[in-house]
């Protein structure tokens, strides 16, 4: 376990503590993120996985304070980035941070592309913002090489976003985020629209950034293959909570898992086998406007016991591996923190 000890001495770049986020709509209050803790260490990639609607995008938007103004509300907690609580600094500070020290690849590429500017114009704008003194010709050269890196012929830079395919737009957005050379890159399902060869290329670009500049990353993804190949740490989210977290080894090699994590792994179609039916986790995710009293996963859990529907499970930690499940809340492991 020497590796884990050295990890602990590493510097934390982003520390989310007890974050609570809700969406207030006319009809109801949606508890999207419920008191989560997350740490990202310098130069490491944290994979955030979990069911659709679990609150992954909401967590990412909270870091950048880009939640929808009317409905999204942060109701508690702190987010420290390089020593500053992002929930307390003023808007000017945030503006200077976005697209600079922290850049984000949004789940929907069109939310970061301007439909009336050409692809080339948009990339050069980012480069000029980042390196204001670069001569124009070198900016253009950098635009070309950036496009090539993401597998788009530079000759196509005069085209507009609507002329690009879904995956090409996604690649442009990734290229723009990488041009900023951020200290923290937040990527919200950055490769869902990419084929595996281009995906491999994009992931290689990201890992190059990590090795060259020590960039830290928050990688939101559904693809456990990407997690296994690129992430150092993993957090599994369910109904707005982190229900399991640890190093990538903890998640992929340890025997003990939250039943939800086990279900996720069993749902992947096996490329080496021909099976007739996939094994999804039965049932639907808990309604975030009306969360159950005990464990939010209990109604779908094959190992649900009486206590699960009554008491909220506490966090059990075993070294770096953390689980929030009554199955593991035994005395042999140190209990770090009670239920809220």
């Amino acid at each position: 376990m020497s590796r884990n000890e050295t990890d602990k001495t590493k510097e934390t770049i982003l520390e989310i503590k007890d974050l609570k986020v809700i969406y207030q709509t006319d009809a109801e209050v949606i508890e999207a993120v419920n008191h989560i803790d997350l740490n990202i260490l310098r130069g490491r990639t944290l994979g955030l996985v979990g069911e659709t609607g679990a609150g992954k995008t909401t967590t990412a938007l909270s870091i950048l304070r880009l939640l929808p103004e009317m409905t999204g509300k942060i109701r508690g907690g702190s987010i420290f980035f390089e020593g500053h609580n992002l929930l307390e600094v003023d808007e000017n500070w945030m503006r200077a941070l976005r697209g600079n020290a922290i850049s984000m690849v949004f789940q929907d590429p069109m939310s970061s592309l301007n439909p009336v500017l050409t692809i080339g114009e948009q990339i050069s704008e980012v480069i000029r913002l980042h390196e204001p003194d670069l001569p124009r010709r070198e900016v253009e050269e950098k635009v070309d090489s950036t496009l090539n890196l993401v597998g788009i012929p530079a000759s196509r830079k005069a085209e507009y976003p609507h002329q690009f395919s879904g995956g090409m737009k996604q690649r442009v957005v990734i290229a723009m985020a990488i041009c900023c050379e951020p200290a923290l890159l937040i990527a919200d399902e950055p490769t869902t629209a990419l084929d595996v060869t281009i995906q491999a290329q994009v992931l290689a670009m990201m890992s190059d950034l990590k090795h060259r500049l020590g960039t830290s990353m928050l990688m939101i993804t559904h693809d456990l293959g990407i997690v296994a190949q690129t992430c150092d740490d993993v957090a599994v989210m369910y109904a707005g909570e982190i229900i399991e977290a640890g190093t990538v080894e903890d998640i992929f090699l340890n025997e003990q898992h939250h039943p939800y994590t086990t279900g996720l792994f069993q749902s992947i179609p096996d490329i080496n086998k021909k099976s007739d039916r996939l094994k999804p986790i039965p049932g639907l995710m808990a309604d975030p406007a009306n969360l159950p009293k005990g464990c939010a996963f209990a109604p779908r859990c094959g190992q649900c016991r009486e206590i699960c529907t009554k008491e909220h499970p506490v966090l059990t930690a075993w070294g770096t591996h953390q689980l929030r499940c009554h199955l593991f809340a035994s005395s042999e492991k140190e209990q770090e923190r009670g239920a809220e």
Binding site: N148, Q199, L224, A228, Q229
Partner: peptide, 23 residues
């Protein structure tokens, strides 16, 4: 190039396709 959900393959990066993309 398929990323496998298995740590065995970690650290052996996929063979990237080299060369420029044809327009």
């Amino acid at each position: 190039a398929i990323p496998r959900a298995d740590l065995k393959y970690r650290g052996t990066p996929a063979q990237l396709i080299q060369g420029e993309v044809t327009s």
